[in-house]
């Protein structure tokens, strides 16, 4: 009986999730894969980092998703002089001319905060990263002599990989808190490119975002439903063994015969994926399996999220850090090509 109820709930939420995808796809063209990954992260309750160049539509994409999820949406811009307290409170002169203190963007919406968008996070100082690290992990913050709980909050952050001036590299511990780092690239398709340039509706991002139906997902039920997905979708021993093999390959790719051109494989990896990262991999894979209407995780579910969940967790030798984006993509692809499901 409970199982039948769960099946109904799973199907109902699946149709909502797919509806959200469709809504976002209608305003963001050429980013279907990224939209699917963001959808997975929402239902796996993971934070997301978007990576891409300037003006590729990262902000519009996140605003569209935030509108679909519903709940409160807050945003802050990463700057070199941004301090942690700027997220927690801000001071201003009140109408009576006396200084006043108000809650900052992180606390303003309280438990209703569903999406916190940190724009250009790599421009913020490490102190800010540290604060975010804690909030992302614990989803609470002590301020104004009380505890603020942020149970439904998902952090979306983006970073501009092109510009390096006045930026701070996000430490690996902070990167590890993000479930996914999703690359947002300019679409290759010529027709889509034409559409982005010549279709006037893409000139007004704000108006475009508002065409997305709001509150498609009851944001305050997402945590519970996410737990249901994780309990419902099972993984076999073969899949578990396969994931362990993949994990080993992120740590010692040379043991699997993986080579990258112009790279000393013995020196490339300083640290492979973390246990938390592998846990997140399975979490995201289960959501993918659910979206594909399966009760069990298949390798293709792992593959669908592997790069985005694992690549940013790999710690490369500093001599290879400048080529991180390219090498990480190549390495994760080679791992998937090489590692087989063990017998």
């Amino acid at each position: 009986m409970a199982s039948a109820a769960n099946d109904g709930q799973l199907a109902d939420w699946r149709s909502r999730a797919l509806k959200l995808e469709q809504e976002v796809k209608s305003v963001i063209v050429g980013q279907d894969a990224a939209i699917r990954l963001i959808n997975i992260a929402i239902f796996a309750r993971g934070h997301v980092m978007l990576e891409g160049g300037v003006g590729v539509g990262k902000t519009t994409l996140l605003q569209s998703v935030a509108r679909g999820i519903g709940g409160a949406y807050e945003r802050i811009e990463g700057t070199v002089d941004l301090m942690p307290n700027d997220l927690v409170y801000h001071t201003f002169l009140g109408p009576d001319g006396r200084p006043q203190i108000d809650e900052g963007p992180l606390l303003r919406a309280g438990e209703n905060l569903s999406v916190f968008f940190f724009n250009e996070i790599n421009r913020a100082r490490p102190q800010v990263h540290a604060l975010m690290l804690r909030v992302m992990a614990e989803r609470n913050l002590h301020a104004f002599k009380r505890e603020y709980r942020l149970p439904h909050m998902i952090v979306f952050a983006d970073r501009n990989q092109v510009e390096k001036n006045e930026t701070f590299e996000i430490p690996s511990a902070a990167r590890d808190r993000f479930m996914m780092e999703i690359p947002i690239n300019i679409p290759e398709d010529k027709a889509l490119r034409k559409s982005l340039v010549f279709d006037t509706r893409f000139q007004h991002a704000e108006k475009l975002t508002h065409t997305v139906e709001s509150g498609l997902l009851p944001f305050d039920q997402l945590n519970d439903f996410s737990d249901l997905i994780q309990q419902h979708v099972q993984s076999s021993t073969a899949i578990e063994d396969y994931v362990i093999e993949l994990w080993s390959a992120t740590q010692k790719p040379q043991d699997f015969g993986i080579t990258l051109e112009g790279v000393d494989m013995q020196r490339l990896i300083m640290a492979g994926a973390s246990p938390r990262g592998m846990g997140m991999l399975l979490k995201a894979a289960r959501v993918h399996a659910w979206l594909m209407e399966r009760d069990f995780v298949y390798p293709e579910d792992i593959h669908a999220v592997f790069h985005e969940v694992i690549a940013h967790r790999l710690v490369f030798n500093s001599m290879y850090e400048s080529r991180r984006t390219l090498l990480a993509r190549e390495l994760t692809a080679k791992i998937l090509q090489t590692v087989a499901v063990p017998a």
């Binding site: 076999s236 899949i239 069990f296 298949y298």
Partner: peptide, 8 residues
């Protein structure tokens, strides 16, 4: 194979 390896 998928049914046998990845389900019960």
């Amino acid at each position: 194979s998928e049914s046998l390896l990845f389900t019960r």
